[in-house]
Design a protein around this nucleic acid. Structure first.
Lengths: 232, 232
DNA sequence: CGACGCTCGTGCGCACATTCACAAAGTCGT
DNA sequence: ACGACTTTGTGAATGTGCGCACGAGCGTCG
């Protein structure tokens, strides 16, 4: 309805925050809250209130001036925008340490991403059961993807095997990949990849620690945020 | 040495990419490559070559014009900048599904982040051994953090327990937190938090899928990037 | 029923990030 | 030893995102 909005491109930064808002709106809704102002949401999400309003304005004008946002309606609208009005089956490639944790996690089904299959190339892992799903051989991937209309794949293999896994996923028809391996995957245009790398995260943190230490050691008492101070 | 550089603030976006460069430089180095141009690195990291050069220029001028970058030296410099010239002990709070996977992962030690301790509040988990580390009760956290000079903590608890875990970590003296729970942690200024949320990642992907479907369905044949076209 | 108070939606300027394009500086061949 | 070629490092231009500040609209209360 109201084909007024929709198709307005939503900035990446906003797309990354919508799930966070959604999460906390759901949480407040469960607690019986029916209305929240942008100020309230901002506090809960630890961001600026204006940012919240701007973010929400991209998906439509669902607030009421002088009052705030109806939590339930907002949850509905954000869900719709994120494509959560139906389930998205996912396949997990790699039944090792991480793959098993993901499969057993259970959070997939709860959040609307049922696991359509887990796959591994290692014969000793095939046919074991993880989180209620029987691991299949990687060669069976195309069949499952086609039959169950899977469009999201999770790569949970060692780094060496990740590119092959991605290639197979793409060939099978998957168009979004969540990659947990420490590699930059190369995929054709039109396929979305998001990489989550534990090592990268830790290194970003240690960079900040490193700076703290350097600052404390007083390696030149330069304020952390000197405003200007670029000399020629 | 050379107090020329250092203390030049490195942009966040760059800090997030340096670990990626480091990863792939290490990989090429292992393969026997001794020199790489910004073009080469760019191709491997799937980014623009100018971006690579600018990123690297923030940590110093370590390239040779007409030649490129000496891989080994660059690895050394990036490592130093990220604070990888020594080890950073980490503690893991939460020995459930995810905590166990992380503990057993082994990648921590390899990458220079030895696990100084795993903690849980559940008595049935305490004293079990995960990845060579015996799980301790959460009350023992402060002692371990103090004794082992831990400054990085990993939150791998259910969402409900995450804020408490973070509070305890901060009180114990941890100044960087890697959070795997689906909550926005509230921490005092000066503490760095990075949240990795499976649900958020999946929802970002399904947003893109959603758009693809909408585009394909031809919900109004508006090109994906119509330049203007806003009619009053 | 009108005035007041609250909160949304957004235009605008600023800061940050990305990319282009080119001079500077090195190598290599002759 | 010099000139052609390559590749860096960076100023300038463009694009993206953020946050203030304020007008617009809704509800409430006298």
């Amino acid at each position: 309805m109201s084909p007024q909005h929709r198709r307005r491109r939503i900035p990446d930064a906003t797309v990354a925050r919508l799930p966070v808002y959604l999460q906390l709106l759901n949480e407040r809704m469960a607690a019986g809250v029916t209305n929240l102002s942008s100020e309230d949401i901002a506090a809960l999400a630890a961001v600026n209130a204006a940012k919240v309003r701007k973010d929400l304005s991209y998906i439509g004008t669902y607030g009421t001036r002088g009052v705030g946002y109806d939590v339930e309606y907002l949850v509905y609208q954000i869900s719709r925008e994120l494509g959560l009005d139906h389930e998205w089956s996912v396949v997990i490639v790699g039944a090792g340490n991480l793959g098993q944790a993901l499969g057993g996690y259970g959070g997939f089904n709860v959040r609307g991403y049922p696991v359509a299959g887990m796959f591994d190339i290692d014969e000793t892992k095939v046919d074991t059961v993880v989180g209620g799903v029987r691991v299949k051989h990687l060669d069976d991937l195309p069949k499952v993807v086609a039959q169950q209309q899977v469009s999201i794949g999770v790569v949970a293999t060692p780094a060496e095997a990740a590119q092959d896994a991605a290639d197979r996923l793409v060939r099978a028809g998957v168009t979004s990949i969540l990659n947990f391996a420490s590699v930059v995957l190369s995929v054709p245009l039109g396929v979305t990849v998001r990489t989550v790398d534990l090592g990268v995260e830790l290194q970003i943190l240690s960079y900040h620690e490193q700076r703290r230490v350097a600052a404390a050691t007083g390696l030149r008492p330069v304020a952390d945020e000197a405003p200007s101070g670029r000399s020629a």
